[in-house]
Amino acid sequence: MATLPPEIPPERSLIEYPSDFPIKVMGARVEGFVEAIARVAQQFDPGFDAATIEQRPSSGGRYLGLTLTIRATSREQLDELYRTLSTHPMVKVVL
């Protein structure tokens, strides 16, 4: 059973808000993946521009890595965005 990392108090956060924050997402290279992930990002950052998503296919071409840079306004926003992306059916990994 995996243990969760200890909760870091907001005053000890290394991230200053607001700031631009990159998030890496990997999923199968299928039709609609980029658009689905862009819609999630826009839910948490209404000013997010899908045209800024960086795409990198895996060496075998089966997977697609995306880098989204969102405007982070709070730790709660980032935590919820990570949870939402991590549970998305098209997503394999979120970093």
Rank of each mutant, 00 (worst) to 15 (best):
L64S: 02
L4H: 09
S59I: 09
P89L: 06
M26Y: 01
E80Y: 04
R75E: 11
K92E: 12
L78I: 15
A28Q: 11
Y17C: 04
R71T: 12
G47W: 00
T67F: 08
A28L: 11
P6I: 05
G27S: 10
A28P: 08
S58L: 07
L95N: 12
R12Y: 14
S58P: 08
A38W: 06
I8H: 10
A51M: 05
Q42T: 09
E7F: 13
I37W: 01
I15T: 14
I37C: 00
V94A: 03
F33N: 03
H88F: 01
P18I: 08
V94R: 01
S59L: 12
V91Y: 05
G61T: 00
L95I: 13
Y63W: 14
P6Y: 04
A51W: 04
I8Q: 13
V25H: 03
R83Q: 15
T84Q: 08
E35M: 09
P6N: 07
L81I: 01
L14Y: 06
L14V: 14
E54G: 11
L68V: 03
E54H: 13
L68R: 02
S13K: 10
G60S: 15
A36M: 05
P22T: 09
F21I: 04
T52S: 14
A72I: 09
D20Y: 14
G47T: 02
A28K: 14
A28N: 12
A50L: 03
V93Q: 11
Q77R: 12
L78F: 04
A50I: 05
L66E: 02
I8D: 04
H88Q: 06
G60T: 14
V30W: 00
E7W: 10
P57S: 15
G65M: 10
V25F: 05
R39W: 06
P18V: 08
Y82R: 09
F33W: 02
A36N: 06
P9Y: 05
Q43F: 08
L68P: 00
S74V: 07
A2D: 09
L66F: 04
L85C: 00
P22C: 11
I37Q: 05
E54V: 14
T87A: 13
E35Y: 13
